[in-house]
Structure formats: structure tokens, C-alpha cells
Design a binder for these strands. Structure first.
Length: 882
DNA sequence: TCGCTCACG
DNA sequence: ACGTACGTGAGCGAG
């Protein structure tokens, strides 16, 4: 019996593209959608054993079947270039498999498939449609099944009339009515506002079709629902029409002509090799590898170790450019010993052990020579690590670590092994596999170590041209060259410089805390009637919710929540609550900020030397670890005192701190172009007061502190990607009230509203969002059918350009500031960056100039439609610089 | 190692 | 109907 398989080419390619990471061949060709498509195809051929196969594609311009609704399918008219460049490859794939493919100018794949299923049905053939699009379920009949892909393309779910009945309680054709009522955002079918799947199914179970629902509007319960249906009769009918798949498109292929007789191994193998699908090669039928033969042999790798006394033989191998890697024993390069160096260029791969390198003068000169180009992987790490050993590094030209972060910020802090897997032929093991992890970590035998490091350098050498091509193709080259690479050297200097900590001051504060905590502990035990571990949420929960019988307001996965916002609500019920809150606050100070910070003081310098991670965050911000100096307390006075321990490293100097005022809202004003918000900043008004005036419709002097507080929360919400639920939680108000605030905000700041809508739309089209300086973040979940994932991606789409642009701006300011200080021969030093503020240590005679220079540089780092504003303060400690 | 809690912007 | 505010890192308890 004939079995026809019809594949929705565009739908599967899209699914595969968003489900898989953006893989590419060593030549820089993107292949993730091709790979996903291939996996699906192999599985279908193997499991369904079709006699006939055809893959349908959309073709040509989108057809506006309904001119009255021009937005139709607007949401997917623009495909990201990384995907569209893969369609020709998918066509090649199908040709290699001798599979019929078809597209028809002006028609979509659905229409072709709809037409062919009908014809096959008439012949009484069995047909299976493979797609990711639920709309296709309308094609199901006794002879036609639809296989929907799940989890990208790796799994399929078969639908016959029985499954549709079980899942929806509908006949296949009623899927059209379902879409007509509920709409489909990914397909830009509007549906009826306020009607989701639940409501639509309820209505259809009762009345059967869109038309019958509309005819019986009067009988439908729910005033709002009735009203929505009445006001959207046309929309409902149009949506139904849009959701209906054509069954009579002029498809000139007969079903008999889609006959499939299996494939030839050779063209498939050639194609897989071109795509570098090494893991799929053994699956090709009729080749030696498929019968269990040897797969592919690892490429041979040769390298040389530079031994003591032989350095002169290697002097002429120190060329320019050269891939360069510093191997260290440990993650923290402020402490980690240097094990050796990897160097590579065309036909050269060297390992230089540390003991040899430090005595090799020509090598040290090569290191410090600005004109000798080094292709590095995390040049900041190399620079600081070498600086601790008194070695200078210059000539850094291309940093693959930063480049690969810009290409995909989702893969944070990559290793050489990660980029080598993407861009190089040479294999590099992850460090964890060479050293072991955790307590089992150990430096391997020298032959293993030297090969590992030499491989890293050799892989780096292969990666650079390919990564550079991708960086340029994505318009990220400016960001890399002008911002991230120069910044890495600014950060290197800051980390190496460190921040002086007054250890005895910390110790003294610790003793005071100990005394207070002891008293609080006693009080808590007394009030609880028993002793227990207050730091254990589990034990604390038992005391509060079982023993004292307090109400459970919020739950976590593991039990009732004891977080501060819950405890604050419980305070009126029992005096123990406020003592616990105080205990928590002081306990945090003691463990994280007194004990934690003290452990991080460098014994040699008496300073803390943080690590600024430049390739961690999804938005382009920095992060800080060991210790994290970006979360030192400030909001509560008791915690703020910790800042008294951060002091200048030179006698008589000052700490100077400058912070941007409302940088994120100013960035929002610029990118949204909202006239009202721009006006507020041009007049340099208090933005929360101004928001309160506009949202509540009152004069400036009528703004109460409550109104300002609420307006402030709304402003925060706007920056985070507003939701009524989030705002209601924050302000402790109902969702309805929160929704009203948002509505009023958007009425006044309509440009902001438009920005929010546009950016989400853009993210859906492109699959990513960008900052002003082209920094990119991919949002694979933006079209997810899972509400939570999609909503999260939508808020991220709103927030990332704002947070990321602010990050771009302060990075520019840091680079400019470092340049200015050098030009002017200033002795002042930049010490820290805390997202919107910069902290310096400054000699007394430079206070005047720095007070003026720092805000000036920050305010003009990038010209926006609104002025940027920075405030500056200084004092004898970080605490006093307020 | 994971989840919770809490410090910052 | 669904159930989260965006971005981080560290310490602790428990398995």
C-alpha cells in the first residue's frame, strides 16, 4: 500500500533553527536548521518507510489573500539571515536524498500540502503530514494523519481523528473554528480578543462552529465575552478564513510523481561531509561506516616542547601574528601559578614550560613587543596573570574569548575547547577532562599537559579567521575592537590594582555583629520555645508554620516560603518575625561581607582583587566575583557601614564615586523616542515625580510620597518589561490595580508603549534583539507555544536593549576615562564599576580635576536624544563617597 | 550539587 | 488559563 509523507519544509526548518544552537561549519556556514531537518528526515524515512515523499516550501511574496487584513502573516515575513541562508542547503539535502521538493509562487507550504492530501485521500492512500504547525490538524481524516514536532524536531506526536477528539473534543475541520476564535499570534491571526483556548473550546463544544457561536451570542454567558464577540464578528470570520488551508491550489505535481525509492549513499555522504555532520555519517545506509566500520580518525597533531638550553633554536619561531595562550593552574589568575605557554602559527605549535619561559629573554621581549601581534583567548586573564609575575604583555590583536561572547552571549565564559569544537579541526579537550574537577583536580603529567596547551594554541590559530568573519558578518566588529578589547585592558589594570580593605575595621565590625547576633539568637529561641538552626529555611518553616501555626502565604518547591517579603507580611502575627528578619540581615552581613570579604584579602597587597567577568551576562553587563564587589550593601545603614572598610591604597588619597542618574530610563527615552519622556529629561525633572504627575494627572506639588513611590515602581516595571502581575507583587496591590497603572502610564507615554510592542515584534521576526551598539541577544523562546517561556522572552526583549545599551555606554566611558587620565598624566586610578557607577582612588591634588572630568566623560560617552547625567561624590572611604 | 535566600544595579 | 517582574554572585542547608 502506498504511504505518502508530506513535509512542511518551512515549518520544520524554523523549528530546527530555534531548537538548536547556531552551529556552523569551519567555513562559517550556519547549519543548525539543516542538521535538525536532516535528523528529522532520517528518522521519518527509517520509521515510516514511505513509498512517496514530498517536501513543500513557501515561495515568493506573501500572498495577501485578504487585502482587508494586510498584517496577515506579517509576523513571519522577515526570517533571520542565519536561517534564510540555510534554505538552499536544505534543498541540496533533499536533492542528495532524491526527495521531491516543491514550491509554488504565491502559495504557502500549507496550501500545497492541503491540496496533495486531498488528492491522495481520493486515491485512498495513507498520508502523513510532518509539521510544527497545529493549523494543519484540520487536514486529518481517516486516511490522513498529522505528525506534530515537539521539543524542536526531535520528537513527533501523531494525530488521527481519535487524538483530536481526545485532546480537543473536536472534529478535525473544527480546528479552523478553534483558530478563528482564539487566533494564533505566531501566524498573526487575530482571533477574538479575550478568547483563549479554554473559552474557544467551551464555545465550540456547545455550538460547533464560529458561525453558530456568532448566531447565538445572546445565549452566551459572560457579559464581557458577549461584548467581545459582538464587536469582533468580522475579525472572527476573517480569522477563520485566514486559518483555512487551501485544498485546491494549482499544484502541477501528481501524487504518483512523488515516488521515493531510497537514496544513493554517495551524494548523501558528500553532503554530510560538506556540512561537517560527522556524527551522521555512520547512519548513511550502504557505506562502510554504517556497517560498523571505523568512523573518522582524529586528525594527527604534532607540536614541539621548548626545553631548557634549546631556546635559541626556537627564537625564529616567535613570529607575528601568533596564537598565544597562557596555561594556569586554577581559575583565579590573581593566585594561579603559570604552568606554561602555548604558541601557534601556520605549521607551528609550541609548548613553553614556565621555567623555560621565564629565563628566555627573547620570549619576554616578544611578549612585551606591541608590534608582535598576539591572537589571544581572554587577554585580560593573560595580562593580569603575567603581571603578577612581573611580565608585560603587549600586542593583543584579536581576543576570541570576547569575540565568541559577542557572537553568542548565551554561552557564557567559553573555553578554548568550546570554540575549537565550532571553528577548528583540531580537537581540544575541555579543561575539566584534562585536570579533573573539584577536589579531584590535579595537574596532569607533563606530556599530557604540553599537548593540551599546544592544541589550545593551534586550535586558536584556526579559529581566529573564521570567528573574525562571523563577527564582521554580524556587524559586531566595531563593538569588539572599539569596546570589548580595549575595555579588557582597562579592567585588567583595575583588577591588578585592587581595592585596599581596612581589615581591622572589618574585624571590629564582625565582633559587634557577633554580639548582636548572639542576643538575637537567644530571643528567637525564647520566642520559639526551642532552639533550632535559624539559617535553615526548613527548620525555620517548621517553627513558624507548624509550631506557631502562622499562615502560609507563599510556597516554594520544597515547602512554605520564608523569604523576607513573606515574613514582612507575617510580622503582625507574632513578635518572633521581626527578630528573625533582623537576624537574617545581620547574619548576611557577617557571613558574606565580613567573613567572605576577609577571606579574599590578598596577603601580599592587603587588597581585594576582584575578577570582572566580561563574558558572562546575557545583556552585556560585567559581573564581579571572588569577591563580588558589585553587591556591597548600601540600602540599609547597618550594611552600608561595610563600605567604611574600603579605603584608598595611598596615604592622604580619597575615594571618588560617580554614578549615572537614571541611565536606563534615559536610554529608554532615546530608543523609544517617546516625546513625553524626552521632555522630562530635557527639563531634568525628577523622573518619578514627573511620572506620578502624568499618570495621576496632578500638579507637581500635589504628588504625594505614595504617588511617587508607585510611579517609581511603574518605572522599574517598564524597564524590566512590564507585567501587571509583577507590578502587583512589587506594590502589594491587586493585579487589576496594577493593570490600571500600566494602562494610564501607556496612555501618557505612548511612545514607550509603541517601543514595547515593536521590539517584541522585531524579536519575533529576527530571533534576536540588539543594543544601540549592535550587541545581540538571541531569544529562542520568543515564539514558543509555552506561555511562560514566551512571556519571559518577551520581557527580555523589552529589557535587554535598555540594560544592554546602558552597559555599552558605561563601557565607553571607562575606556575614555582611562585614556584621559593617561593623556593628562594623572595618578588617579579607576578601581571599580558597579553597572552605573565608577569608583576611583584619587590623590588630594587631583580631586578638583577628577570631580569635573569624571562626570564630563561619563555624560558624553555617547550622545543620545536626552542628556546623560552623572553625579560625583568623594570621601576618605567608599562609605563617605556618598 | 541544588534550591533558597539575599546583597547589588 | 497560564503565573514572573530584568541582570548578577555568594553562603548556607540538605540530599
Amino acid at each position: 500500500m502506498s504511504h505518502l509523507v508530506l513535509i512542511d519544509g518551512n515549518s520544520i526548518a524554523n523549528r530546527a533553527f530555534y531548537a538548536l544552537p547556531l552551529l556552523s561549519t569551519s567555513a562559517g556556514l550556519h547549519t543548525n536548521a539543516v542538521l535538525g531537518f536532516t535528523t528529522m528526515l532520517l528518522k521519518v524515512l527509517e520509521e515510516m518507510k514511505p513509498t512517496h515523499v514530498l517536501v513543500a516550501f513557501d515561495a515568493g511574496k506573501v500572498v495577501f489573500r485578504h487585502s482587508e487584513f494586510a498584517e496577515y502573516k506579517g509576523g513571519r515575513s522577515k526570517t533571520p539571515p542565519e536561517l534564510s541562508e540555510q534554505f538552499p542547503l536544505i534543498r541540496e539535502l533533499l536533492d542528495a536524498f532524491s526527495i521531491r521538493r516543491f514550491e509554488l509562487e504565491g502559495y504557502e507550504a500549507d496550501d500545497i500540502i492541503g491540496t496533495l492530501t486531498l488528492r491522495a485521500d481520493e486515491n485512498n492512500w495513507k498520508t502523513t503530514v510532518i509539521t510544527g504547525d497545529k493549523d494543519m490538524l484540520q487536514l486529518v481524516s481517516d486516511n490522513v494523519s498529522v505528525a506534530l514536532t515537539r521539543k524542536g524536531v526531535s520528537e513527533i506526536e501523531m494525530y488521527t481523528p481519535k487524538e483530536i477528539e481526545e485532546k480537543y473534543g473536536l472534529k478535525p475541520l473544527q480546528i479552523i473554528d478553534l483558530k478563528g476564535l482564539m487566533g494564533d499570534s505566531s501566524d498573526n491571526i487575530p482571533g477574538v480578543p479575550g478568547v483563549g483556548e479554554k473559552t474557544a473550546l467551551k464555545l465550540l463544544h456547545e455550538y460547533g462552529s464560529v458561525e453558530a457561536v456568532l448566531d447565538n451570542v445572546d445565549k452566551i454567558s459572560g457579559k464581557k465575552l458577549q461584548e467581545n464577540l459582538r464587536e469582533n464578528v468580522d475579525k472572527a470570520k476573517l480569522s477563520k478564513a485566514l486559518a483555512t488551508i487551501m485544498r485546491d491550489a494549482p499544484v502541477e505535481v501528481n501524487v504518483e510523481e512523488t515516488s521515493y525509492q531510497g537514496y544513493e549513499a554517495d551524494p548523501v555522504v558528500d553532503f554530510f561531509k560538506k556540512m561537517e555532520f560527522k556524527s551522521l555519517l555512520p547512519k548513511v545506509k550502504g557505506t562502510a561506516t554504517a556497517e560498523g566500520g571505523e568512523v573518522t580518525e582524529a586528525a594527527p597533531f604534532s607540536f614541539e616542547v621548548v626545553e631548557e638550553g634549546q631556546t635559541s633554536q626556537f627564537a625564529d619561531k616567535l613570529t607575528s601574528p601568533m596564537a598565544f595562550y597562557v596555561e594556569m593552574d586554577g581559575e583565579n589568575y590573581h593566585h594561579a601559578p603559570i604552568l606554561g605557554f602555548g604558541l601557534a602559527a601556520d605549521g607551528v605549535a609550541l609548548y613553553v614550560p614556565w621555567d623555560v619561559a621565564k629565563e628566555w629573554t627573547a620570549f619576554r621581549e616578544w611578549l612585551a613587543d606591541e608590534s608582535r601581534e598576539k591572537w589571544v583567548f581572554d587577554g585580560k586573564r593573560d595580562t593580569v596573570g603575567l603581571a603578577w609575575h612581573g611580565l608585560e604583555l603587549a600586542g593583543i590583536r584579536f581576543d576570541s574569548y570576547l569575540a565568541s561572547y559577542l557572537l553568542n552571549a548565551a554561552e557564557s565564559s567559553p573555553q578554548v575547547a568550546d570554540i575549537a569544537a565550532h571553528y577548528a579541526e583540531i580537537r581540544v579537550l575541555p579543561d575539566e577532562e584534562v585536570y579533573g574537577k573539584g577536589a579531584k583536580r590535579i595537574v596532569p603529567e607533563s606530556d599530557v599537559l604540553s599537548e593540551h596547551v599546544a592544541r589550545k594554541a593551534a586550535a586558536l590559530w584556526q579559529c581566529v579567521p573564521r570567528i573574525r568573519t562571523e563577527v564582521e558578518a554580524s556587524r559586531l566588529d566595531e563593538l569588539l575592537k572599539r569596546i570589548e578589547e580595549p575595555l579588557s585592558l582597562v579592567l585588567a589594570a583595575m583588577e591588578k590594582q585592587g581595592v585596599k580593605v581596612n581589615e581591622s575595621r572589618l574585624q571590629q565590625m564582625g565582633e559587634e555583629l557577633d554580639a548582636q547576633l548572639e542576643k538575637l539568637t537567644e530571643q528567637i529561641y525564647e520566642l520559639a520555645g526551642t532552639s533550632f538552626n535559624i539559617n535553615s529555611p526548613k527548620q525555620l518553616g517548621e517553627i513558624l508554620f507548624d509550631k506557631l501555626d502562622l499562615p502560609v502565604l507563599k510556597k516554594t518547591k520544597t515547602g512554605p516560603s520564608t523569604s523576607a517579603d513573606v515574613l514582612e507580611k507575617l510580622a503582625p502575627y507574632h513578635p518572633i518575625i521581626e527578630v528573625i528578619l533582623h537576624y537574617r540581615q545581620l547574619g548576611k552581613l557577617r557571613s558574606t561581607y565580613i567573613e567572605g570579604l576577609t577571606k579574599e584579602i590578598h596577603p601580599g597587597t592587603g587588597k581585594v582583587h576582584t575578577l570582572f567577568n566580561q563574558a558572562t551576562t546575557a545583556t552585556g553587563r560585567l559581573s564581579s566575583t571572588e569577591p563580588n564587589l558589585q553587591n556591597i550593601p548600601i540600602r540599609l545603614e547597618e550594611g552600608r557601614k561595610i563600605r567604611e572598610a574600603f579605603i584608598p591604597s595611598e596615604e592622604g588619597w580619597y575615594i571618588l564615586a560617580a554614578d549615572y542618574s537614571q541611565i536606563e530610563l534615559r536610554v529608554l527615552a532615546h530608543i523609544s523616542g517617546d516625546e513625553n519622556l524626552i521632555d522630562a529629561f530635557q527639563k531634568d525633572m525628577d523622573i518619578h515625580t514627573r511620572t506620578a504627575m502624568d499618570v495621576f494627572g496632578v500638579a507637581q506639588e500635589e504628588v504625594t510620597s505614595l504617588m511617587r513611590r508607585q510611579a517609581k515602581a511603574v518605572n522599574f516595571g517598564i524597564v524590566y518589561g512590564i507585567s501587571d502581575y509583577g507590578l502587583s507583587q512589587n506594590l502589594n496591590i491587586t493585579r487589576k490595580e496594577a493593570g490600571e497603572f500600566i494602562e494610564r502610564y501607556f496612555a501618557v507615554f505612548s511612545g514607550v508603549k509603541k517601543y514595547m510592542e515593536d521590539i517584541v515584534q522585531q524579536a519575533k521576526q529576527d530571533g534576536y534583539v540588539t543594543t544601540l551598539l549592535h550587541r545581540r541577544r538571541y531569544l529562542p523562546d520568543i515564539k514558543s507555544s509555552n506561555f511562560n517561556l514566551r512571556s519571559f522572552a518577551e520581557r527580555t526583549a523589552m529589557n535587554t536593549p535598555i540594560q544592554g545599551t546602558a552597559a555599552d555606554i558605561i563601557k565607553l566611558a571607562m575606556i575614555r576615562m582611562q585614556e584621559k587620565m593617561r593623556e593628562k598624566g594623572l595618578k588617579s586610578r579607576m578601581l571599580l564599576q558597579v553597572h552605573d557607577e565608577l569608583i576611583f582612588e584619587v590623590p588630594e591634588d587631583e580631586l578638583e580635576i577628577m570631580k569635573q572630568l569624571v562626570p564630563e566623560v561619563m555624560e558624553h560617552a555617547l550622545e543620545l536624544k536626552v542628556p546623560l547625567k552623572a553625579d560625583v561624590n568623594y570621601g576618605r572611604s567608599w562609605y563617605e563617597a556618598k
